[in-house]
Amino acid sequence: MEKELYSWRNLANSNTHRGIIKDWKGLLDNTKLKEKDYHSFLSAAPYFFFCPLEAHLVISKLKLGSEYETDFIVVKEGYSSGTIYEFVEIESPHTKLFDSKGKPSSKLNAALQQIMDWKRFLKSDKTFFKKFLPTVNTRIDSNSKIEFKIVIGRRSDNQEEMEKREQYCDENNIEIMSFDRLSDIANRNLFPDEPTIYSGQMHFLEDLQKKNELANPFFECVSDSTWKSICKKGHARHFYTNFLDDILAHRTYNKYFDQFKKEFIRT
């Protein structure tokens, strides 16, 4: 029996979407929570916070050798130019970027060091890079297919802090954003019924069910072991068409999917 196609556009301005935002804001306002609590929530609903257009898969805690572990990696479609991987390091929303003297906080320094460690590892272990992050090249410092982001603290209107943050971004070739920026992203009302992959391969794919399923915004992150199973084919280009069946075979969905289905009963 053919599966039902869902209209993800119904999610915009829905009770389900509002529930996700409410739960997230409740976490942000709870100063007793730790980084692991935010990681757990984001891992269960990554699309709403991390996925721009052309991204429908996020990895949680990918192990880089035996020494390092990422928080998240967003897998972005790069078409024939090569798959793009955005490494995301999260700290606590209750962490300050700078201390009372205007110097980087210990948490910000730790996050920056984590990024440098990842960069150094990828430069030194090209075999790992090619095997588990397949793309067109293994460059890090220029023309790279690897991007880096730190999510830390809350939004600040302090102009000096904002300028310092931008300076660190420019000097380290990374992006630093607040948890409030994740809230802004989660508030968007863009939920297309088909994946936002604009390639001939995806356009001419006749299986509408697979395309609709790939666009499902309720997917959870995949684990280290699951990702390493998916990427073993080693395709460096057109990730979402070359790995489509593997992605869907390993997909799991969060509790909000059940809420969505209850809210929009079909006849």
Rank of each mutant, 00 (worst) to 15 (best):
N15K: 13
R18W: 12
K22V: 10
L27R: 04
K32E: 11
K34F: 10
P46E: 03
K61Y: 08
D71T: 03
V75T: 04
K76Q: 11
T83S: 00
I84S: 03
V88N: 01
I90G: 05
E91R: 11
P93C: 09
K96P: 05
K96S: 14
D99Q: 10
P104F: 15
P104V: 13
S106Q: 15
S106K: 14
L108D: 09
A111M: 09
F121V: 01
S124N: 11
D125C: 05
D125W: 03
K131A: 10
K131F: 01
P134W: 01
S142R: 13
N143A: 12
S144Y: 12
I152Q: 09
R154E: 12
N158R: 07
E163P: 06
R165G: 04
D170R: 13
D180R: 05
R181P: 05
I185L: 10
E194N: 06
P195Y: 01
Y198S: 04
Y198V: 03
Y198D: 02
M202E: 04
H203F: 09
L208D: 15
N212D: 13
E213R: 07
P217N: 10
F218C: 03
D224T: 08
I230P: 00
H235A: 06
A236Q: 12
H238V: 03
F239C: 00
E263L: 13
F264M: 06
T267P: 15
